[in-house]
Design a protein around this nucleic acid. Structure first.
Length: 483
RNA sequence: GGUCCCAUCGUCUAGUGGCCCAGGACGCCGCCCUCUCAAGGCGGAAACACGGGUUCAAAUCCCGUUGGGACUACCA
C-alpha cells in the first residue's frame, strides 16, 4: 500500500447533505480518510445531492463544517475543486446521462415500462407465493412488438440495468469473500421515469470517473457492491476495492435512529465535546491497535490505522466512554487553549467575560472537573456574575452555620494580606480552628455563600480568584439574610 | 419468506489451536487521598450464546441451533 509500490490510493466519502452527519457516517468518513492518509493517498469528498429538492445550502455547508471540525480534510471536493470536478452529483447529471446511453447502446440497460402499481402488485403476489420479491425482469424479455406497443401508448418508462446472471464475488477488505449467487441480484432502476439517475448509477459512474481505488463505507451497502461493480464493468471500467464496515449502533445496541436523539457530529460539538476526543473515540469503535492502547492522536491514527484490524461485529456507541475520553483531552489542554474553547459556552449562557485573564486563571480549578465544555458555566458562573442566589441545599447550610460564622470568616479573610491562595488558605484554617469543627463543616457554608452552591471548585482558589472585596460582600450579604 | 453479515465481561475490545480456569479500557463496587465535586492511586465483581464434532489440545477449525443486523425500492 505504499505509494512506491503501486498506483496512488484514492478514497472517498460521499455524504448526502440532508441535515447533519451522524456518528456512524462520521466513522465511515474517518476510516476512509485514515486509509487514504496512511497510504499517502488522496481523499475525495463528493456530495450526493441528486435529490436536489431536499438539499439546502445550509445542510451542504453543515456537512463540510462537521468534517472539518472533526479534523478531516480532503484533497478534492466541491469547495476546493480538483482534477475530477465537479464534486456535487447535482452538477454531474450530464455525465450520468452520457453513461446511461452507453449502457443502453451495449445492451446493459433497458427501458422498463412497468408502473409502480404493477410492480407493487407483482411483489406482493411473489411474497404470498413464498418467492423472492425482487423485480422479475419482465421488460428485459419484451419482444420488439410488445415494446412497440408500450412506445405507441407513450407509456413512461425507467431504465433498468440488466444484471448479468452469474455469481458475484465481492472480495471485501473487511468481510472477506462474499458471494452473491446468480439470480439473487435483480435488475435495478438506474434512471427514474422522471429522467433522474439513482444512487446505483451515480455512484458507479462517479467512482469510476474519479478513479476511486478503495470504497470504504457502512456494511448496509454491502449488497450494493456487486451492483456497483457490475455497472462499472459494463461501462468498461475496473471496479474499486471494497471495504464494508460493521454498523455503529446506539447505546442500546439498536441501529441508530431518531430514537437515540441527536447523534450528529454537530450535536456533540454543541454539547462541548472536543474534536480530538470524538475522533479518538470513533477510531476505537470497530478498530484497535493492540490489547491496551486507548489514546491516539490524529497523527498516531494515520500512522497506525489498518483495515485488517477492523472488527467484524457492530459496535454500540457508549457515551460514557466518550465522556471519559473527553475529560482526558480537556485535561491535556493548556490554560489559554482551554479558556478559548470554553469562552463560547460561557457567553452562550449570557455570562459576560470582560476579563480574559481571570478566565484563564480559573482554568486550573476546573480543568479536571468537566466531562464536557458545556459544564463550564455551572462551575464558573460565580466568578462572572454577582447575581448569586443560593440553591436549596446552600441556603440550608448557610442558615445552619449562622450569621456569626459567616461574619467571622469575612473578618478573617479581610485581614489576608497580601491576597494570595496561601493567605486565603491560612485564613480558612484559622476559621476551622476557631470554630473547632471539621474543615468540611466549617467550609461548606462559606462555599454556599460565595458560590450559591454546595459544589464548586476548591474553596481557597475560588475565593482568591473572586477577590477580597467580592468575597467579603457575599459573606456579609449571606449573613444578613439570616434573621 | 429468501440471501448475506455477525456472535468474548453491561459496553468497546485483545485473542488467528497450546503462552487463556481469557488480557486491557469505560462503566459499576470497595478502599485511599480529600474543603464539596471531580481528578488521581489501589483493589474487586463481571464474558468465550448453546449443542455437536475435528484434535493429544479449541474462545480460536467444521456443522447445526439460537439470537442480533443488513439487503430484498423508480431510498441512499
Amino acid at each position: 500500500m505504499s505509494p512506491e509500490t503501486g498506483p496512488t490510493i484514492r478514497c472517498r466519502f460521499a455524504p448526502a447533505p440532508s441535515g447533519s452527519i451522524h456518528v456512524g457516517n462520521a466513522r465511515s468518513a474517518l476510516f476512509s480518510w485514515l486509509v487514504a492518509r496512511h497510504a499517502a493517498g488522496t481523499f475525495v469528498l463528493r456530495v450526493e445531492d441528486t435529490d436536489a429538492s431536499r438539499v439546502t445550502e445550509e445542510a451542504y455547508r453543515g456537512v463540510l463544517g462537521s468534517l472539518t471540525w472533526l479534523g478531516l480534510d480532503w484533497d478534492e471536493g466541491p469547495d476546493i475543486g480538483g482534477t475530477h470536478a465537479p464534486y456535487r452529483q447535482s452538477q454531474r447529471l450530464d455525465l450520468y446521462q452520457e453513461h446511461l446511453h452507453a449502457l443502453v447502446e451495449s445492451g446493459d440497460a433497458y427501458r422498463c415500462y412497468c408502473t409502480p402499481e404493477e410492480l407493487d402488485e407483482r411483489r406482493k403476489a411473489a411474497l404470498t407465493r413464498g418467492e423472492p420479491p425482487g423485480y422479475d425482469g419482465r421488460c428485459r424479455r419484451l419482444t420488439d412488438q410488445e415494446r412497440q406497443v408500450f412506445e405507441d401508448e407513450r407509456r413512461s418508462f425507467a431504465y433498468r440495468f440488466a444484471m448479468p446472471e452469474r455469481d458475484w464475488v465481492v472480495d471485501d477488505l473487511v468481510k472477506g469473500e462474499v458471494t452473491f449467487r446468480a439470480g439473487m441480484l435483480r435488475d435495478f432502476v438506474i434512471v427514474r421515469s422522471d429522467g433522474s439517475p439513482t444512487f446505483l448509477l451515480a455512484v458507479a459512474v462517479d467512482d469510476m470517473l474519479m478513479a476511486i481505488t478503495h470504497v470504504i463505507r457502512g456494511d448496509d451497502l454491502l449488497a450494493s457492491a456487486p451492483r456497483n461493480a457490475a455497472v462499472i464493468q459494463a461501462l468498461g471500467g475496473t471496479p474499486p476495492t471494497y471495504a464494508h464496515l460493521p454498523q455503529v449502533l446506539g447505546g442500546d445496541g439498536k441501529p441508530l435512529s431518531k430514537r437515540h436523539g441527536s447523534t450528529s457530529v454537530e450535536a456533540f460539538r454543541e454539547q462541548g465535546y472536543l474534536p480530538e476526543a470524538l475522533m479518538n473515540y470513533l477510531a476505537l469503535l470497530g478498530w484497535s491497535w493492540d490489547d491496551e492502547t486507548t489514546f491516539f492522536s490524529r497523527d498516531e491514527l494515520i500512522e497506525r490505522f489498518d483495515l485488517s484490524r477492523v472488527s467484524h461485529n457492530p459496535a454500540a456507541f457508549d457515551t460514557q466512554k466518550l465522556e471519559w475520553l473527553n475529560n482526558h483531552y480537556i485535561q491535556q489542554l493548556g490554560d489559554d487553549e482551554l479558556a478559548a474553547r470554553i469562552l463560547p459556552f460561557l457567553t452562550q449562557t449570557g455570562l459576560l467575560i470582560d476579563d480574559l485573564a481571570e478566565l484563564r486563571a480559573a482554568m486550573p480549578l476546573v480543568r479536571e472537573r468537566m466531562k464536557t465544555l458545556s459544564e463550564a458555566p455551572l462551575l464558573l458562573r460565580f466568578l462572572f456574575t454577582d447575581d448569586i442566589e443560593p440553591d436549596e441545599k446552600a441556603t440550608k447550610l448557610i442558615e445552619k452555620a449562622g450569621a456569626e460564622h459567616l461574619r467571622t470568616a469575612a473578618d478573617l479573610l479581610e485581614q489576608v494580606d497580601p491576597w494570595s491562595v496561601d493567605g486565603v488558605s491560612a485564613a480558612l484554617d484559622a476559621l476551622t480552628e476557631r470554630t473547632g469543627v471539621s474543615r468540611t463543616k466549617a467550609w461548606q457554608p462559606i462555599r454556599a455563600a460565595i458560590s450559591g452552591s454546595t459544589v464548586s471548585p476548591p474553596l481557597d482558589g475560588s475565593i482568591h480568584l473572586l477577590g477580597k472585596q467580592r468575597t467579603s460582600t457575599r459573606l456579609r450579604a449571606a449573613a444578613a439574610t439570616i434573621s
